[in-house]
């Protein structure tokens, strides 16, 4: 629990400084002599806060994984076909701006397509239509088209979401609709991100049910008893479909790729909260680091974009409180 203890001053200062400042304000009104103690305390608090938070936000190895990044501005915009190609009956015309990554020039490019859609058309339908009818070189991932396989994470109008769950008409504004690849995962081609890095993060938290009775686990003669209440304790975190959207939304991952990210941490919580798991405190130690739970700044944007309601932000805060609990208990 080393990092938990090392991080205690930061969290103490984050709460302490406002309290002290409030006290200083009140004392200046009612009891001025108190300032003599409060101001030095505020100064110490500010220093503690500033220096320890700097470690969190501007870490030493800010960019350590992957190849160097490139200018991500769009360099070329092409307007394709003025005539809309009709997809469905009773269709409406929509301007779709498709931002894609070109691996040979290492640049973002944008094409604008005019397509006709109906009220059921999803972004995935539209992309498939473009691929089949207009430009077969377009690459994207897709499989189940019902929001459970987690392949089709893209950014629509700036918001990370699943292409198969996003309705085109509902997301079209006056200037049309814009689809671009995720930035929070490394890029491969067009709308396709590379997930090797993402999977490495997931593996790092040991996402398996650990049992001491390995043999009985495989023989499986009787079930491990578990009540519905115990199931509910970890259920939402097990909804993760590994689409990578939370990493794309996370401001910490976006600025510091060393941070393990909301997906992996939510999975740590999923197995920690499972009454059948026997890894215990070991699990917390795996994520008890600046790159783990203590890197989270609680922006909460991961939970806002999660298509399955996993709520990684809550999972991470629960992990933090659990880490503090255990650090006190097993000191």
């Amino acid at each position: 629990m080393r990092e938990t203890i090392r991080n205690a001053p930061l969290y103490a200062a984050m709460i302490g400084v406002p309290v002290l400042m409030m006290a200083e304000l009140l004392s200046s009104l009612f009891y001025p002599p108190a300032s003599a103690i409060l101001v030095p305390l505020i100064i110490i608090g500010l220093f503690v806060f500033g220096f320890s938070a700097m470690r969190e936000v501007y870490p030493k190895h800010a960019i350590s994984i992957g190849t160097p990044y490139y200018f991500n501005g769009i360099t070329k915009t092409t307007v394709e076909k003025k005539e809309p190609s009709v997809m469905k009956k009773n269709a409406k015309e929509v301007k779709l701006k498709l931002v894609r990554f070109n691996p040979s020039s290492k640049r973002m490019e944008a094409n604008i397509y005019t397509i006709a859609v109906d009220r059921f058309t999803t972004v995935l339908d539209a992309l498939l239509h473009i691929k089949e009818k207009e430009d077969s070189t377009l690459s994207m991932r897709y499989s189940c088209r019902m929001g459970i396989c987690g392949s089709c994470g893209v950014v629509v109008n700036g918001k990370p979401c699943l292409a198969c769950e996003t309705n085109v008409l509902n997301s079209t504004g006056l200037s049309g609709i814009e689809v671009s690849p995720m930035h929070g995962n490394p890029l491969l081609k067009d709308l396709v991100n590379d997930f090797d890095d993402f999977f490495r993060r997931h593996i790092a938290v040991k996402p398996q049910l650990f049992r001491e009775d390995k043999v009985a686990q495989y023989v499986a003669d009787a079930e491990y008893p578990q009540t519905q209440k115990q199931v509910e304790a970890f259920l939402p975190y097990s909804y993760c479909i590994m689409c990578g959207l939370c990493l794309d939304a996370c401001p910490v991952v976006n600025t510091n790729p060393d941070f393990i990210g909301p997906q992996a941490l939510s999975q740590a919580q999923r197995y920690l909260a499972d009454s059948r798991d026997q890894l215990g405190t070991e699990r917390i130690k795996l994520v008890d680091s600046m790159e783990g739970i203590w890197g989270c700044e609680f922006a909460g944007s991961c939970s806002k974009v999660c298509p399955k309601g996993v709520d990684p932000a809550t999972a991470i805060q629960l992990l933090k409180s659990e880490a503090v609990d255990r650090a006190i208990k097993y000191k």
Binding site: T67, Y69, K106, K159, P160, P186, L187
Partner: peptide, 21 residues
């Protein structure tokens, strides 16, 4: 080898949040 391209690691990426949060 697979060639991947990294866009992360810059503070300016924070501005992406404007669109949804």
């Amino acid at each position: 080898d697979k060639q991947v391209y990294e866009l992360r690691g810059r503070q300016s990426n924070l501005s992406r949040l404007v669109h949804f949060d």
